[in-house]
Amino acid sequence: MSALRTEGLEAGVGKVTACRDLNLVVKPGEVWSVLGRNGVGKSTLLLTLAGLKPLRGGQIQVEGTALGDLSRRERARRLSILFQNPDVIFPTTVFEAVMTGRHPWISGWKGTSANDTLLVREQLTRMGLAGFEARALPTLSGGERRRVDLAALAVQQTTVVLMDEPVNHLDLHYQVQLLQTLLEDWRQAGQAVIMVMHDINLAMRFSDRLLLLYGDGETCQGLVADVATEENLSRLYQHALHRYPAGGHSFFWPL
């Protein structure tokens, strides 16, 4: 069964149409990257897939159930989303911020369990944030906050994980290392990932499939090797790109 499936999906906001008649089948354990120019509606598509923006047409299914038929809580147990640039207003601690990811799993009257605490600590360690538990979010750097957001996403343990520019603000080292460990975890757990990426080469390196948003609702999707061609990507960014082979991989460089 597919983790996430869309049929004839149309998503957009205002005059922007991100996609028209989009048919996606995202299988468990797959990693997809969404690429496109600024303002083509990548984030809008992600919010629509998360059920946070009304869709203009078609339908979305999560594990075979229409997204609209799920209660908010059920939806939050199956589908999680990392936002692009969450603002921090109150001095919440790192521990509390990561614990928010457990919310859909904590029943109304019971507090957090030892298992919740364990999961939170495990992910904090994994994100290089051990010892940061009591730190207030406003005192963290942009990269540290991003890692807090990623840890919160990880403890939510959903079948579908949506991420809007997950490696925003992160150093090169963390970009590669965190994507590697997180995506490997999620692949093994059979979780499907759809992420909006800015860096083509990073996207190619870590994804199985690509979804290109050309603007005006036109899309192109498929295996990385099939979709990532000079022709497609040059059209996508409206800028000539050249493909350079590098070992078994290849990378793109703007001309």
Partner: peptide, 14 residues
Amino acid sequence: NLLAAGELKAESLG
């Protein structure tokens, strides 16, 4: 707590 962290975030967490 969730609403203080952001309206969309709260909505996405159920």
